[in-house]
Amino acid sequence: MSFTRKSKPASSSTQAAPFSTGLSSLDDLLGGGIPPSCSVVYTAPDLHSEYGVLLQKYFVAQGLATGEKIYVVGSTAEWVNECMWTPPNATTVEEADEADKLKIAWRYESMKQFETTVASSSSSRTFDLTVRIPPAVVSDALAKHQLVLVDAEAPARVLSRLKDVLATNTVPVRICIPSLGGPQWGDLGPQDILRFLHRLRALLRQYPQACASTSLVATVSGDSYGNGPGWHQRVGWVADGSMTLSAFSANPALAAAFPSAHALVRLHNLPSPHSLVPASDRFSVIRGASGENNISLKCTRKRVVFETMHLGVEGGVGERRTEATVTKKKAEKRVARFEGDAYDF
């Protein structure tokens, strides 16, 4: 019996590369990005945070930066203007993160750092949340029809228009559908949303040059939405990939236990085109060799990172930085003992 080392197969010239989401850590979870002819759905049930929409803006910004064709359904040009953009200096985000790191003892500096995420890759840009996309970039993309805004009409009409544009495009196409189920979509029920996602996945199967990224509005993202619990599982059945971003703002206990994280990420299913095993199970660095599902989301001032969930430093940062409390009486005793020892020789 012989054993061979697992290695990533060489990409074929006829196989299109996955679409980057704009986040290297999210690309790692998806096995390299969103595969062609596949759809991914994000659910974020917290009403006070919009992590699903934030990932959609990364998706659009990545498409604009790489010159790909983008169709945004149900949003306006003002929504695109709120997307993040690359900083003037490529090291701005990394330098800010270095400044925020905790200083450690000198005797531990030579040890290898504990890695919980992946570094930036060449396929995804380094976007800064404090930098907004220049309006000239958006207006130029609209004028050249690189960016097309599609109204949120009846689901059947939206699918019919997407079918027309996909049939006439041979270039890579990104379909972004933020806040599906919101007021702009009218009165959509659970069956309407599931039927739309299922037909969207069937449409993408016919066009290998396109992919879709969808986020559900918070009011229809809870697992109990529809006919009792199990909503997330049903959404996973009609999409190639689905994940839930549960913010810690709704659970103070989790926020206290994991102060460096902001949301718990639950992977329901992952894209696996032309394979029984998702590429993420074999090549994801964050999930590890065993395909773990203990992942968190951290949103700093400048970037968003998916990383392996881990406990912080024992005792907490605040306890390490506080000075020992010494009462006045104890201090006088120590001084008297020191003076007595100094003259006792």
Results as ranks from 00 to 15, higher is better:
Cys176His: 00
Lys330Asp: 14
Ser221Leu: 06
Ser213Leu: 13
Ser260Pro: 00
His198Val: 00
Pro9Thr: 05
Ile133Ala: 03
Asp281Glu: 14
Leu270Lys: 02
Ala143Leu: 09
Val150Cys: 07
Ser139Cys: 09
Leu204Gly: 03
Gly32Ile: 02
Gln209Thr: 13
Gln209Ser: 10
Val304Gln: 02
Glu98Arg: 13
Ala212Thr: 08
Ala167Trp: 02
Thr21Cys: 04
Ala16Glu: 09
Arg266Asp: 08
Val93Leu: 04
Glu94Trp: 06
Glu314Ser: 13
Met1Pro: 05
Met1Glu: 10
Val93Asp: 01
Thr4Tyr: 03
Leu29Arg: 05
Phe3Ala: 13
Pro172His: 06
Glu82Tyr: 02
Thr91Gln: 12
Thr325His: 13
Asn81Lys: 14
Gln56Arg: 03
Glu153Val: 05
Leu159Val: 03
Pro183Cys: 06
Asp187Lys: 14
Tyr207His: 15
Met111Gly: 06
Phe19Ser: 02
Ser7Arg: 15
Ala156Val: 14
Asp240Met: 04
Ala10Pro: 01
Val131Glu: 11
Leu200Asp: 07
Leu276Arg: 14
Ala10Cys: 04
Ala342Trp: 08
Ser121Ile: 02
Ser37Cys: 08
Gly31Val: 07
Ser139Gln: 15
Asp341Gln: 15
Pro271Asp: 05
Ser24Gln: 02
Asn294Ala: 11
Glu98Lys: 14
Val277Phe: 03
Leu26Gly: 00
Ala256Asn: 13
Leu203Ala: 06
Arg287Lys: 15
Gln206Cys: 11
Gly186Phe: 04
Trp106Cys: 02
Glu98Asp: 13
Asn293Asp: 15
Gly67Phe: 05
Tyr207Glu: 02
Pro278His: 08
Val238Ala: 10
Ala263Thr: 02
Met84Leu: 14
Thr116Met: 09
Val165Met: 11
Ser13Lys: 12
Ala65Met: 09
Ser284Thr: 05
His198Gln: 11
Ser121His: 06
Ala10Thr: 09
Trp231Ala: 08
Ala65Lys: 11
Val304Leu: 14
Phe114Arg: 15
Ala105Asp: 13
Glu314Gln: 15
Val150Asp: 01
Thr92Asn: 11
Ser37Arg: 11
Ser139Trp: 05
Pro183Glu: 12
Pro87His: 04
Ser249Ala: 12
Ile177Pro: 01
Ala156Thr: 12
Pro271Leu: 05
Asp187Cys: 09
Lys8Met: 10
Leu54Asn: 05
Thr126Lys: 10
Pro273Gln: 08
Gly32Glu: 01
Arg266Val: 09
Val304Cys: 07
Gln15Tyr: 07
Leu197Phe: 03
Val171Trp: 01
Trp185Thr: 02
Tyr207Trp: 11
Thr14Ala: 12
Arg195Cys: 06
Pro190Trp: 03
Ser272Pro: 01
Ser272Tyr: 01
Ser25Thr: 08
Ala44Lys: 00
Phe345Val: 12
Glu319Val: 10
Ser12Gln: 12
Lys298Arg: 15
Phe306Asn: 03
Arg161Phe: 13
Leu276Lys: 15
Gly228Lys: 01
Val148Glu: 10
Glu98His: 10
Pro18Tyr: 01
Arg205His: 11
Leu200Val: 03
Arg132Thr: 11
Gly33Val: 04
Lys144Gln: 13
Gln62Asn: 10
Leu267Asn: 01
Ile34Thr: 10
Ala261Tyr: 08
Ile175Met: 04
Asp223Met: 10
Tyr58Val: 00
Ile177Phe: 04
Ser12Asp: 15
Leu23Trp: 00
Val335Pro: 00
Ile133Tyr: 00
Ala331Glu: 12
Ala218Glu: 10
